[in-house]
């Protein structure tokens, strides 16, 4: 690994890890369903960065770009479905606060 790659590698992987931490924090801390979804999005951003970084470091950008494009397509579909679920929750009980949802016991 050349020194140039080393210099690229650690800031980017650190950024990915910090994105994971922030996303986890946001999902754990919030009571709002939309915020939880945004937190999950941040997690996915971290994964995207990590994949592209892997492709850049190994010079395998063709493969990793294909992976990321597929990932983005799936991400959008999941977000649309999750948005639909949130909308239905709101229509059902006029609130999207998790605390009012906890009718099921763990």
């Amino acid at each position: 690994m050349s020194p140039d790659l080393t210099q690229v590698f650690w800031p980017f992987s650190a950024a990915a890890i910090l994105l994971f931490v922030m996303g986890t924090y946001y999902v754990l801390v919030t009571f709002n369903l939309i915020r939880a979804l945004i937190g999950v999005e941040i997690l996915i951003k971290g994964a995207t960065l990590l994949i592209i970084l892997a492709g850049y470091v190994t010079g395998n950008t063709g493969l990793t770009q294909a992976l990321v494009i597929t990932l983005i397509v799936i991400e959008v579909v999941i977000m649309v479905v999750a948005g639909g679920v949130i909308l239905c929750v709101y229509r059902n009980n006029k609130s999207i606060d998790v605390r009012e949802l906890r009718s099921l016991k763990g």
Partner: peptide, 19 residues
């Protein structure tokens, strides 16, 4: 922008337009 700088222009375009 970061993806673009990491030699992945197509993924960057998708990220920008979709995400």
């Amino acid at each position: 922008i970061l993806l673009f700088r990491l030699d992945s222009p197509m993924a960057a375009v998708f990220e920008l337009s979709v995400c």
